[in-house]
Amino acid sequence: MTQYQRLVLASRPRGEVQESDFRMETVAVPELRDGEVLVRNHYLSLDPYMRGRMSAAKSYAASQALDETMIGGTAGQVVASRHPRFVEGDFVAGMLGWAEMGVADGGQLRKVDTSQIPLSAYLGAVGMPGMTAWFGMNQILQAKAGETVCVSAASGAVGSAVGQLAKLRGCRAVGVAGGKEKCDYVVKELGFDACVDYKAGNLEADLAAAAPNGIDAIFENVGGAVFDAALARTNAFARVALCGLIAGYNGQELPIRNARLLLLNRITLRGFIVTEHMEFWPQGLAELGQLVAQGKLKYRETVAQGLASAPQAFKGLLQGHNFGKQLVKLI
């Protein structure tokens, strides 16, 4: 291949993301310099954090530049290498963005073993989403056996891992998800003790029934009414791992009506960005990989086909249309 396609951010979204905010381009495959690796991407990861990067507002990371390849995690195969650690045919995970191919410094790539773990899993359960769940559980929530852990977006890539890790610790795992199908999956396939359908219209009452002894730890991905309902059920000295606020990613307000409980229940709340804690990744990924290989950590994927499908799939992700990890298959 002498050319490949990529998607660039053409304009900053106002409100909901539109397909017109992206532009497909055909670019030449560059020549490699010493230390660089050329990768043919097989899978592209779509994740909620990307919505924040599309904004020009100040945040924890630099905004996505206009007219440049949209940021994103990728998993693929080495096509050519001028780095001593990689050879043609190696499978790797990296951040090569919304593109069919990409060049990266070898130090920015992670060689992965596909003999027991599928390549796509390195963008999900054994990748950034899995690490997000692992870090939140182990470094922030530190839930003990017998405690109740509540996780929003429970059928998603991060939430599904949180609940399973909680069960492995001997906790009661309570999920919140949108729709009966997702809740059935969370309970019947992933082994959560209960799952509340926030679309059913009885969020507070259903959550009270699902967590009769209160909530000791909240892994929050959504914010808004879902977070408020969980706060209302907290026990004294509850912990909150604040991972995402997807309910406000299109600019919606996120009032916390039960904020007084942060004080009354002496709650510890910590927001975190998992890529700021890379020192934990070797341990976390090793543990997650072992759990996946042993069948103790299950996952599900929603796969869109072809690079051109990425904008619509991303829009669907933010609207909760995906089931489990949202991927784009590029080859």
Rank of each mutant, 00 (worst) to 15 (best):
A232D: 15
K188G: 11
L330F: 01
H83R: 08
E279G: 11
E253G: 08
K182F: 13
R300W: 12
A211L: 14
T234M: 14
V27Y: 00
R23F: 01
V87I: 08
D184C: 14
E147T: 08
L254R: 05
Q3G: 07
Q312M: 12
V126P: 08
A62W: 04
P84L: 07
Q252T: 03
M95N: 08
A57F: 11
Y4H: 10
G214V: 02
M278K: 13
Y4N: 07
F323Q: 12
V186H: 15
Y249E: 05
G191E: 07
T26R: 13
S309L: 05
T148I: 06
S63E: 06
C183P: 15
G102A: 07
L242F: 15
L203W: 14
V196K: 11
L231T: 01
A229M: 02
R270V: 13
A154Y: 01
H42N: 09
N138D: 09
K188I: 03
G214T: 06
E253R: 12
L254A: 09
K296S: 14
L231D: 03
V112Y: 00
P48N: 07
A10C: 01
G15M: 13
F22P: 00
K298F: 06
A200P: 15
V79H: 05
A247T: 00
T302E: 08
R239M: 07
G89R: 00
F280A: 10
Y198N: 04
R6A: 12
R266F: 06
G175I: 13
P282A: 06
R110H: 11
M278I: 14
K199I: 07
E88M: 01
K182G: 03
Q294Y: 06
V37E: 00
K329Q: 15
R169S: 15
G107L: 09
K329M: 11
V186W: 12
D105H: 08
A133I: 06
A310K: 00
Q290K: 14
V17L: 12
G175A: 12
G251H: 04
G244Y: 02
D206M: 09
G72I: 12
R82S: 07
S11C: 06
G284C: 06
G76K: 04
A205E: 14
E279Q: 09
G324E: 09
V187Q: 07
A154V: 01
M101F: 00
E16K: 15
A308W: 00
I71T: 06
A310V: 00
D216A: 04
A208F: 08
P282H: 13
A304W: 01
F280T: 10
T26W: 02
Y249Q: 05
A210T: 04
I117P: 05
S55T: 04
L261V: 14
G136I: 04
A133V: 10
Y4Q: 03
S155Y: 09
G97S: 04
G179R: 06
V196H: 09
V176G: 03
G72Q: 14
V174R: 07
T114S: 10
E181C: 04
L269S: 12
L297T: 09
V240D: 10
N250C: 13
W98H: 01
Q108V: 02
G124W: 02
N41H: 13
G289F: 02
I331M: 12
G248D: 02
D184G: 11
